[in-house]
């Protein structure tokens, strides 16, 4: 038979679960342990990748007679009793037992040759050698990159204005109004810049206004 002992600890909205499973019988057993918290499971990770004996919400281990093993995971779900249940427990032969040994042996943190050589898929390589992606802080958020991509590709002023208007949609109404007022003043100044006489300046503004209104 398989005996399971659990302990849960709730800290800052996260439930931490520890469980020890012991094989009391006299045959080797393959056990599948499932969590019973009713929420997502956050399995232990090595270098950002879930450890390899976790599969979705369950972990599988092979236990020789008298052997015990510990598992631990976290979940945002509230504690339940029991937090872990034995979903499956079956007798296995020697061959399966050996195959199961690798997952249990991967507990240490040192990168050792035998572990890398046992790499079964790309995720194993990542677990052993570490995720090479640049850290998030090294990547500038799009706002800090200066020119918006539309402008960089040499699109028209109109596209840029439309992009601006689209961006304004997410802003509070007073801010949009203030932007519109500033924009109107800037346009007035731009329109008058080349004018040398009063009628010329007023004509240009009159000529341009309906277009602005149509676009709004």
């Amino acid at each position: 038979m398989v005996e399971i002992t659990c302990r849960t600890d709730r800290r800052e909205g996260v439930t931490l679960v520890e469980a020890v499973v012991r094989n009391d019988g006299d045959v080797t057993r393959r056990v599948r342990l499932e969590h019973a918290l009713g929420g997502p499971v956050w399995p232990p990770r090595r270098r950002g990748v879930p450890v390899d004996d976790w599969n979705d919400d369950a972990v599988e281990r092979t236990l020789s007679p008298g052997e015990r093993t510990g598992i631990g995971f976290a979940s945002p779900a509230p504690p339940a009793s029991p937090p872990v249940r034995v979903a499956e427990s079956r007798r296995v032969g020697e061959a399966v037992e050996r195959r199961g040994d690798r997952g249990e042996g991967a507990a240490g943190n040192a990168v050792d040759a035998s572990e890398v050589s046992a790499a079964g898929d790309a995720a194993d390589v990542l677990r052993e050698l570490g995720d090479p992606s640049p850290p998030r802080d090294a990547v500038l958020p799009p706002d800090d990159l200066g020119e918006p991509p539309e402008a960089a590709e040499g699109t028209t002023e109109r596209d840029a204005e439309e992009a601006n208007e689209a961006r304004e949609e997410g802003l509070p109404a007073p801010v949009v109004e203030w932007f519109a007022a500033v924009e109107a003043r800037v346009e007035t100044v731009e329109d008058c810049a080349a004018a040398t006489s009063l009628p010329e300046a007023t004509d240009r503004r009159v000529a341009r206004r309906p277009r602005r209104r149509r676009r709004r």
Binding site: D121, A122, A123, S133, P134, A138, V139, L140
Partner: peptide, 15 residues
């Protein structure tokens, strides 16, 4: 780009 390198899943290289 660094952003491209960060968005890439290195494990997908194998496939």
């Amino acid at each position: 780009t660094l952003a491209g390198a960060r968005a890439a899943d290195p494990a997908a290289l194998v496939d």
